[in-house]
């Protein structure tokens, strides 16, 4: 996920500028350190030294040198900076070849809507590796900031119809970690998301799969529970309400609630199988994400298990 290992052209351009600045700055630091060390050693006061050094007022030549050289360095840095500022500000929101994504940040989850494809998902941004991804970001509540360190720098999500745009490309398939970078409440640090980059064919299959109807649990009792307790807020396929994270295909996601990593070989505290993670999350959402709006639903252990079982089975083929 590091910005130092860029995985796409936007992050690479930013990394290039970082390298240039670091180079110039290391040069400056080395010069200053060298002079400082030399001065401290060469001109330290010997014991008993009562002499008075010459009281130099200044030296115009030297002073001009250390005014002009920094200015030259800044020009070297300033020109590519300005070029890059305008380059990265390109607006692809009207580009038919770009994948349009509307990002809406919520306390503490991410909503991704593909307006041209008619698909809405949460927590996991699925994108093809052969197109420019054009982002329109806003927030539903407080300020957040949309950041995928290894793909592109961040953009704040503002309230009140103030939409920010950015774009990036991800030529290499894989899963990348995204983060919220603006203090947004107690679970700010837990507001992670995943970016899944797949090839075009898989992406198309995924879009189609998202639109397929999803069957309710076979067991009528569980289906009833799901309808009453979950679908009042969440959507699964064509069922349920849109206000909170869309759960279509949650079983094939990388994480539950963006923070509990799904894996069959759990290594750390926040890792577990999909089902275990779902159970952990539904049992006590506040323990996983303090301040989350997900309530502790009135369910027995068995009921939670049954629902988790169903959700873990919601997998998309792509």
């Amino acid at each position: 996920m590091s910005t130092l290992r860029p995985q796409g052209p936007v992050a690479e351009e930013q990394f290039g500028l970082m390298k240039l600045t670091i180079l110039i700055m290391v040069l400056v630091v080395v010069i200053v350190f060298a002079i400082a060390v030399y001065v401290i050693i060469r001109f330290r006061r010997r014991p008993g030294d009562k002499s008075i050094p010459a009281q130099v007022e200044g030296n115009h030549k030297l002073e001009i040198i250390w005014t002009v050289i920094p200015i030259i360095l800044l020009i070297i840095l300033g020109v590519p900076t300005v070029k890059s500022v305008f380059g990265l500000a390109k607006d692809y929101t009207k580009d038919p070849n770009a994948v349009q994504v509307k990002v809406t940040a919520h306390q503490y989850w991410w909503e991704f809507e593909y307006p041209n494809l008619g698909v809405k998902t949460a927590q996991e941004l699925m994108i093809p590796n052969d197109a420019i991804i054009s982002i329109e970001a806003k927030t539903a509540d407080v300020l957040h900031s949309f950041w995928i360190p290894s793909l592109a720098g961040k953009i704040d999500t503002n309230p009140g119809g103030n939409v920010n745009v950015m774009y990036f490309e991800a030529p290499k398939t894989g899963v990348y970690l995204g983060k919220c970078a603006e203090l947004c409440g107690p679970s700010h640090s837990l507001m992670d998301f995943k970016v899944k980059v797949v090839d075009r064919a898989s992406f198309d299959r995924w879009v189609a799969a998202m639109k397929n109807p999803v069957a309710l649990p076979a067991d009528a009792e569980v289906a009833e529970l799901l309808n009453k307790q979950c679908l009042s807020c969440h959507a699964i396929g064509g069922n349920g309400g849109p206000a909170f994270p869309n759960l279509t295909g949650i079983g094939s996601r990388e994480s539950v609630a963006g923070i509990l990593m799904n894996t069959d070989q759990p290594q750390y505290k926040n890792e577990g199988t999909v089902k275990d993670n779902l159970i952990k999350w539904i049992e006590d959402p506040q323990a996983v994400k303090p301040g989350t709006l997900m309530p502790k639903v009135d369910l027995t252990k068995e009921q939670i298990e049954a629902i988790s079982d169903y959700l873990a089975g919601l997998k998309l083929e792509y």
Partner: peptide, 17 residues
């Protein structure tokens, strides 16, 4: 010097916050 680095806006998209 890190201040100057932060001043380069495109790089700051990465450093910021």
């Amino acid at each position: 010097v890190t201040g100057v680095m932060l001043a380069a806006a495109p790089a700051d998209f990465q450093y910021h916050d």
